[in-house]
């Protein structure tokens, strides 16, 4: 077992922060902020079902998030309705079902995170998952740029747009799953979006946005974890508060250009 401030736990939270920082940039630029945030809610019914069946809650969350990502992808293609509308209908429902399936304390842990102690397999799986997300963003960066400028241009450049879209949604779901333990379903969506929003206010190009977002995400996560240890508070709310403070700091300085 590993505590939240052990080196392996710190490595896990840092890798989660890097994945969230990178992925969030494309979520923000693709105008998926709200959709991505709400996708994280779909973890709840998975956690609830896993607890009912005596399975690890994280496994239930991963399965539910993967299913949620595929559901968004299918509905978006079948109905031609915007992702935000689909999320509004389906994932608010998931939140309600999740709340019915979990008890009060479990619900709070699922919503806001409860780091506690980490098993060796959790650290290993988490590091692998984060590495997969980071590798995806790095290798798919050019294809994601063309897709966000125009899916039709991407198509004529030989990109399998529906497949890339699905891969992106699955990477999003995996990133949310990585942070469930620390931040919970509600706050993990925030760690994906807030560092990217902060970076967008100061960045002059894509590389600067990606690196700034990762930096903000890392600072918030590591500083929040350290402060939580010192102040004997939950780390999740502290991490998000620091990220929000970074965003607010960019609003009191003149914006670029």
């Amino acid at each position: 077992m590993t505590t939240t401030f052990a080196p392996s736990a710190l490595a896990l939270s840092a890798s989660m922060a890097v994945a969230a920082g990178l992925l969030g940039c494309f979520a923000l630029m693709r105008r998926m902020s709200l959709a991505g945030d709400a996708l994280s809610h779909v973890a709840l019914p998975g956690i609830g079902l896993a607890l009912l069946l005596g399975a690890p809650p994280l496994a239930g969350a991963v399965v539910a998030l993967g299913a949620g990502a595929i559901l968004i992808w299918v509905l978006e293609r079948r109905t031609r309705v915007g992702v935000d509308a689909i999320v509004g209908v389906v994932f608010s429902g998931a939140l309600a079902v999740g709340a019915l399936l979990t008890t009060g304390e479990q619900l709070m842990d699922a919503l806001f995170g409860a780091p506690g102690t980490l098993a060796g397999w959790e650290v290993g799986a988490g590091l692998l998952g984060a590495a997969a997300v980071v590798a995806f963003i790095i290798f798919a960066r050019d294809r994601l740029v063309l897709m966000l400028i125009s899916p039709d241009i991407a198509l004529t450049a030989g990109i399998d747009v529906p497949r890339l879209d699905l891969m992106y949604l699955l990477a999003f779901a995996l990133t949310v799953a990585l942070g469930l333990r620390y931040l919970g379903a509600l706050l993990m969506g925030s760690l994906v979006i807030i560092p990217a929003a902060t970076a967008r206010r100061v960045a002059r190009d894509l590389t600067t946005m990606l690196t700034t977002s990762v930096a903000v995400s890392l600072v918030a996560t590591l500083l929040g974890t350290w402060l939580a240890e010192r102040l004997h508070r939950e780390s999740g709310p502290l991490i998000i508060s620091i990220a929000v403070a970074c965003f607010l700091a960019t609003t009191i300085t003149p914006r670029r250009r």
Partner: peptide, 13 residues
């Protein structure tokens, strides 16, 4: 304010 420059787009393609 989309942080994608002409260089980002051209280099991606």
């Amino acid at each position: 304010d989309l942080p994608i420059t002409g260089r980002d787009l051209l280099r991606a393609r």
